[in-house]
Structure formats: C-alpha cells, structure tokens
Design a protein around this nucleic acid. Sequence first.
DNA 1: ACCTTGACATTGG
DNA 2: GCCAATGCCAAGG
Length: 113
Amino acid sequence: MSSPSHKRIWKVVSLIPQGKVASYGQIADLAGLPGRARMVSKALKCTPEELAIPWHRVLRADGKIAFPVGHEFGLQQQQLLREEGLQVDRLRVNLSACQWQPDLPTLLFALDY
DNA sequence: ACCTTGACATTGG
DNA sequence: GCCAATGCCAAGG
C-alpha cells in the first residue's frame, strides 16, 4: 500500500546522509506533513523491499531507537548506526553533532517543487 | 460508522 | 530520567 504521502516520506528519508540522523517528527515536517510523526513510522513499516532507504537513521525526538529493547530490528538499527560511526548507548544516540540539517534547495528539488 | 492500534511528540509531575 | 496523560491521524478490523 503506497500513498503520495508515503512516497514523499521515503524521498525525504533517502536524503539523510551517512552519519546523520533525523526524528520521525522532523521527517514529517520536511515531507509537508506537520504533526504526523506516526505516519512516518507507518510509511517506513510499508517500505517496499526494492526501495533501499536509510530507515535506521530515523529516531525518536530524544534520540532513542523506537523499537522496544530486545527487538530484532532495534538491535539491527543499533548496529547499523554504530557502523556509521555514531555513538549508541542503550538504544539511544547522542544527538550532539549528528542531527541532519537538510539543504533546502536539494530537498525542494527531491520533492519536485 | 465505531473502535483499536501504532517504528511519535510534548508536557507536566 | 522515567512515567502518564494528551494530541495526533491513517489503517485495518
């Protein structure tokens, strides 16, 4: 199931560079869906296999991995983030100096504005 | 049409 | 920092 909103969300997430992270709410805002952080999580859950996007770079606003402790995806996410050089402590990322700040022109171009 | 469910965010204690 | 209460809103029963 894919809606126009989902596609915009996937595009925005695909722009997050290696070593940087963003929150669900931030992605929603950038995708033109203010206040709809939960829609971002849904969109990620429905991501088609063939679409390779850096889903692991999306965290809660406080830097925590959204999956419960012990969840397989959470552990995988933690590992992927560490492989990018980020410091992850107990499923939480130290947000200092790794928060994504999108380049506006690039963002607008990606969203066909 | 009503109810429940989230890979969330914010606020207040 | 942790927890509970609220707000949020699309999807699926």
